[in-house]
Design a protein around this nucleic acid. Sequence first.
DNA 1: ATGAAAGCGCTAACAC
DNA 2: GTGTTAGCGCTTTCAT
Lengths: 354, 354
Amino acid sequence: MNLGPIRSQSLAAQVATTIRNVAAAAGVSVATASRALSGSPAVIESTRRRVVQAAIALDYTPSRLARSLVTGSTGNVGVILPDITNPFYTSFLAGLETALGAQDIGVLIGDSGENPERENRLVRRMSTQVDGLVLASSRLSDEQIVAATSRRPVVLANRMLETRTELPKRLGQVVIDVHPGFTAAAAHLHSLGHRQITYVDGPAQSWSGRQKRIALTLACTRLGLPLRILSTMRADFSAGRTAGRQIAAEAQHDGTTAVMAFNDQVALGVLAGLREGGKRVPDDLSLVGCDDSLEDGLAWPALTTVGSSARALGELAAHKILNPLGHESGRIPTALIVRESTERARSGQGAPVG
Amino acid sequence: MNLGPIRSQSLAAQVATTIRNVAAAAGVSVATASRALSGSPAVIESTRRRVVQAAIALDYTPSRLARSLVTGSTGNVGVILPDITNPFYTSFLAGLETALGAQDIGVLIGDSGENPERENRLVRRMSTQVDGLVLASSRLSDEQIVAATSRRPVVLANRMLETRTELPKRLGQVVIDVHPGFTAAAAHLHSLGHRQITYVDGPAQSWSGRQKRIALTLACTRLGLPLRILSTMRADFSAGRTAGRQIAAEAQHDGTTAVMAFNDQVALGVLAGLREGGKRVPDDLSLVGCDDSLEDGLAWPALTTVGSSARALGELAAHKILNPLGHESGRIPTALIVRESTERARSGQGAPVG
DNA sequence: ATGAAAGCGCTAACAC
DNA sequence: GTGTTAGCGCTTTCAT
């Protein structure tokens, strides 16, 4: 029996099969088809089977757009990162994507390039097609973030609002607690006999950068350890390298015997810069990174680092965005991972090379 | 004058402002509001201004969902990668995202984990909310890819269909042409006096892996250079490290003096493994990576590598998906980048260490 | 247990 | 130049 014109499956621009087709093929109404496919208990087993079979036969895939439009929930979340290329965010994203994917939530991604305007454009652009927004190391102002909150639930990762601002509902915050790791790192270096540390900092505007600076300063002060801070514009390899060269050149004057870095990329750069400046790690200077984003053994000597799990941060952000319950900010702890790049301070400066 | 109930902006779950509100506020019909906002020439300047002002005043953001539903175009593309964490794909993604973002196209991302089933699920899941799909190093079968093509235009990156299959319309292919780079690498090693090369391969199933193997085999054959191939399961640091240890242990028996690696991650692993096996690069063995995904100086010694631009591949994929015109497959060339990890072969084997 | 109908927010004919 | 109407594909009352 021929129920109306069969959709001629020509080779041209396919018209996707809709729930209407499925309903027709199964001989039920659209409503019933919808119920059957979404597993409503209000549909009898025999009809359900027919509907499902029709759906399979027609290779039916429900339109998420239409569904979202009516339900008001999209099944997607948006993530905005400052730099997709940075291993820290890459791991963060992997953790997030895995956790969300397991719940069949899609991920829309945007790279802000550390540019607040671009970040804001991305927020607006995404806001109508996601259920929530995850902003990693956001460079937006507190006000802008609060504003974003009125569109969609927001989870801030690696950043917290100044608490003078009233915390809006629908705002979650997940951060890495750098204190334990940095405190341990300072203590570790101190116990190895180091008496002058140079810290190669990241960009000044970053919230997490400020946290690290504070934690380290505090720890060093308590130990009576003098700390010298070197600023860089971008927290990447080449900035570290430049700093490394500088440190190599100045070490004999300022007495620096240990270097800490904003992150592992910078540390790797410092390593290269020191080497180019004729200094060896850990013989001449000790070196500590941050993030534990490098596979063990990737650096040589293996890098002592303040370990945290960007991946865990991503997973935590995923959970926060899925249930915007409490206001307590999630924290991922840090701990010092001692490997080969730190060693007992040599009394004198080794004979300068090259 | 009060036109109906003003939406009470309570603190509770905001109801987003719709084009209806804007139209009402501007005192025009919804259609006119739509036209005004989308820049239709058929609306007089004065009304346009009123509409736009109302939109701004109400902080109106058009619903992409609704728009997509009616226009049939979503303004999003989906990207599926085997591993978000891998720098190659990370650069690829960055190139893609930049190129698409410039056209105000959003990016939906999925990590297949090199799992064909998961990849297929992602394809289905995304298909109703994107205008096109970019599959990087897809592990799907030719048939599955062709099937995906019937849902949305597809661009294959770093993979080509076996040409026995009829090429579907709406399928683009962009690849990295490894031949020039690998040929140059083999010639380079040969000219340095190396007479036995070991190649540390990646996963056997990968299309791009096959290309590299073919290119290298061909080049070596032409040079009369014997080639030994070591297979690995995953193309990552630790696989390389294992291979490196093995090579260090066997080098004296098989006469290997130069190692080539599937990619830079593997090469870095090989470097570590060789070091652990008491071999030094480039003194004892030369080493060549692939991709140029490491910042220069990140590895030490700096890695000679077959350079290609994953970023450029991403940009090319973006262009392909935006205009699914021709069938010619886009190619990104490769070239050998000589740095410090390759050197003239030593006549004898250096005294084995450790 | 199933169907008919309304409507999510928007654009695109088709009037006027 | 602007308004009216239909409808994208789906879910969800409300009847039956």
